[in-house]
Amino acid sequence: MAKIGIILETKEYEKAWNAFRFAVTAKKQGHEVKVFLMGEAVECEGLTHDKYNVDEQLKSFVNIGGEILACGTCLKSRHLESTEACPISTMVDCVELVVWADKTVTF
């Protein structure tokens, strides 16, 4: 099984929803998966839309053992706090995710 790193930089409903659907699917197939939220993507927790419930997919990912990291600088610039699902992380953590991963996907 592969180690898959996902870097998400958008809170656009459909793209963010698809990123977490991809993460859930990969995790269910037995891959190790980590997601790094950067830029406006740090606002994905709690994000819902009639067609694209990002928060539901995010929670599904966490509930099956997926790991999410959130850029601390991006959180602070939006006056957001670290959460259990999206702990505060650094650019060093993002680099380590890319080094750790066999494959890295960006959305």
Rank of each mutant, 00 (worst) to 15 (best):
M1G: 14
M1H: 12
K3P: 02
K3Y: 09
I4P: 07
G5W: 03
I6L: 15
I6Y: 00
I7L: 08
L8A: 06
L8M: 04
K11N: 12
K11D: 13
Y13R: 05
Y13W: 05
E14P: 01
E14M: 13
A16H: 00
N18V: 08
A19G: 03
F20D: 07
F20L: 03
F22E: 09
A23C: 13
V24N: 08
G30K: 08
H31E: 06
K34A: 11
F36N: 11
F36S: 00
M38E: 04
M38G: 05
E40I: 00
A41I: 01
V42D: 01
C44W: 00
E45L: 03
G46M: 06
L47H: 02
T48V: 10
T48M: 06
H49V: 10
H49P: 08
D50H: 06
D50R: 05
D50T: 02
Y52F: 15
D55W: 04
D55S: 09
E56A: 12
Q57R: 03
Q57L: 00
Q57V: 04
L58P: 02
K59A: 09
F61C: 02
F61T: 01
V62L: 04
N63T: 14
G66M: 05
G66W: 04
E67V: 14
I68H: 05
A70G: 11
A70H: 11
A70L: 06
A70V: 11
C71H: 05
C71N: 11
G72C: 02
G72L: 02
G72H: 10
G72W: 05
T73E: 14
T73M: 12
C74T: 11
L75Y: 01
K76N: 14
S77E: 00
S77G: 10
R78S: 07
L80D: 13
L80E: 11
S82K: 07
T83C: 10
E84W: 09
C86N: 09
P87G: 15
P87E: 13
P87W: 13
I88Q: 12
I88R: 11
I88H: 14
S89E: 12
T90F: 14
T90C: 11
M91K: 14
V92P: 01
V92N: 13
V92M: 12
D93P: 01
C94N: 15
C94T: 08
L97R: 13
L97V: 08
W100M: 07
W100L: 10
D102Q: 09
K103M: 15
T104F: 09
T106D: 04
T106W: 07
F107T: 04
